[in-house]
Amino acid sequence: MPACPRTGTNKGVKAGTVKSNASEEGRDTVPVPGHFIIGLGRGIGGALLFALPMQMTMEMWELGFSMDRWRLVLLLVVALPLLVGIAHKVGFEETFDLKEDLRDAFIAYGLGILTSALVLLLFRLLQPAMPASEILGKIAIQAVPSSIGALLGRSQLESAHQDSGNDDASYGGELLLMAVGALFLNLNMAPTEEMILISYKMTDWHALAVVALSLVLMHGFVYAVSFKGGHEIEPGTPQWHAFIRFTLPGYVIALLISLYALWTFGRLDNVGATPAIMAMIVLAFPGAIGAAAARLIL
């Protein structure tokens, strides 16, 4: 990419511009409480940054009581391995083993529940007269995006974050990052009625055009970002290699996450295959951009 100067990753830039010495000291020693509290603060910030759009979305409040309970349970369970995976890449502390990843994941989950409950209380969406299942449901469904945000808050807001774990990112880690990027944009839009409304307005031809555009945009990001960040793909690798190894799997991840989100939010009940695929393609459009740009936004 001659157009992008090799200035290193954005994380490298962030690390360079504002440098605190806290994390440098904490690298080898047991983290000091002050540092940990700062980490919690960043987690809360990240939870708000990520989840506030959803906390202020009407459909999300309704899902709190209308959503199928088993799907809610499944969502809450599925979130955990995802959080552990994210914690492995970006945690509250530099993590090296599963125990620490689990700890970070649970801290993030806790922060997600706490911030969701506070924000919903603040908006007077939780009231004592409501049945317990409604209150719990409303908090629980918000806690998942909030907890993802709390974990990402570290990489988003921590100025001195050295993503040492990303330098030797594995292929699986790369795909996980794409999944998180897809979720980042996807979850904001998935609960809204507009997703299915757009798919109803489109014809099959429009959907095919959206698929093509999603892939082209994704590949642009993958190609540009990968060479800027200089990870996985060696310079000189043919374009189509990157397309098959990164762009297509990334798009399929965005599609699958979209499908899961739509199903979770009850948008696919009794819906035929073609309308379901159309809605999936619509939602995967922002998801694809999020997945491909994960290196930039995470």
């Binding site: 290193g8 330098d167 060696e234 098959i244 190894r245």
Partner: peptide, 21 residues
Amino acid sequence: GSAKPSRKPLGRKAHWLEWAT
């Protein structure tokens, strides 16, 4: 942070799993 030579492009061939995926 202006240059990041540490992020080396891992001079390795793609694993067959990547192609399979």
